[in-house]
Design a protein around this nucleic acid. Structure first.
Lengths: 214, 214
DNA sequence: CGCATAATCAAACGAACGTATGAAAATGTC
DNA sequence: GACATTTTCATACGTTCGTTTGATTATGCG
């Protein structure tokens, strides 16, 4: 078999457990029990626990970046010479993640957690390699699409954008608790639309900087 | 002494350790060693490790909500009969948190982490009690200030807002890595202004909902 | 002072952790 | 079918974990 069954089950279970309990909170025993495999299988297949986390992340992160870059290229092409709209760029940025969150909510939750568990050099390295090159391309494209906004401001605002969807994709339960909304299943398309509405307006807002540049 | 020294040192050290390593990653031994107190002091003063976390959160969360509510009341008063502007409301919502993040970055990081470690019933309960009542008041005020935006949309957008500042307050190091900005010290006032610019525009954006209400 | 209460301390407990080991079973190849 | 390789398995090792205990010291107060 080209794709060992135990390996895949371990990745699935680890994705689930790491997302729900964090790296420290999910024990190798929990994960292997959930995967129905032996205790030693993690060390055999991935070296150690951290190697397992690395593979869990790498397995899907590349897909998101590929989706983003593909949609961005499509938007650039569709604009035909001119710069794509801010909306189109942000949709290319947001949609692949929201869609991934719909298909693999555990992975979305894990990614969000990893943004906050910065103590792993591993995670920083993986994020750097997987996301940041693409991210810089988006900043460049946004700078062209919103020429009146200073590039510094664009960089901040792309992070506000990341923060917005990272936050809402991990724990919609809390949001529904507060909003008391009964639309309990957030349709990925509707969520993307909401996010793009919000972030595109924010991205193009005039900067009220009082010229305090040092 | 009315404020026992050991207790305070434990809270400070726990805030720091929990923020940096998470609840599971920070051991009681780490915390007591950092506080210079005995291993058993956590259990003596707080019952157990989770009780320590509860006190760490409660110590500061109330201040943030008080700050928000006070600034909101001020904005309502200043508007004199009319509804305050969206900007004023969002500034009242954001500024106390950003200021707190400036004064106590460890607490800000901890709060962000806690948003993602939802497995503690404790955290959910504390958040509900500490924040959500105030949050609903902000939603109501925003609904008046932006009457053209459906209330459902307002609720989503206030969460996008929370996501934006939760994200940027926890780990500015990563952001600077990507932006390669050398303005390494994010002034709280400048950060608040940036966030308000972004979120106020997003809050008032026309909703491009295609009327797919179920 | 004398005494009750509060706080600190060193030491130890059982449990759970990540990992290592060597034998057993499964798999692929000739 | 025999052999080499890969994969599983039960088991054990050494650490570290959160918590408990009982003695010891400090503190508040009449």
């Amino acid at each position: 078999m080209s794709t060992p069954l135990t390996r895949e089950k371990l990745l699935d279970s680890a994705e689930h457990m790491f997302a729900r309990r964090g790296f420290d909170g999910a024990s190798v025993r929990d994960i292997t029990a959930d995967a129905g495999s032996n205790l030693g299988s993690v060390n055999y297949h991935f070296g150690d626990k951290q190697g397992l986390l690395r593979e869990v992340i790498l397995r899907r992160a590349k897909r998101i970046v590929e989706g983003r870059d593909a949609m961005l290229a499509l938007a650039v092409e569709a604009a035909g010479g001119k710069a794509p709209t801010v909306r189109a760029i942000l949709e290319a940025f947001i949609a692949p993640t929201v869609n991934m969150a719909g298909e693999h909510p555990d992975f979305a939750a894990l990614m969000s957690r990893m943004h906050y568990e910065g103590r792993f050099a591993l995670v920083g390295e993986v994020f750097e390699r997987a996301f940041h090159k693409s991210l810089r391309a988006f900043v460049a494209e946004l700078a062209k699409a919103a020429p009146t906004v200073p590039e510094d401001e664009i960089k901040w605002r792309i992070f506000f954008t990341v923060g917005a969807f990272v936050f809402v994709t991990i724990n919609p339960r809390m949001i529904f608790t507060v909003t008391r909304s009964d639309a309990a299943k957030p349709d990925p398309r509707a969520l993307t639309r909401r996010l793009v509405d919000f972030c595109a307006a924010g991205m193009q807002a005039p900067a009220s900087c009082k010229g305090v540049r040092k």
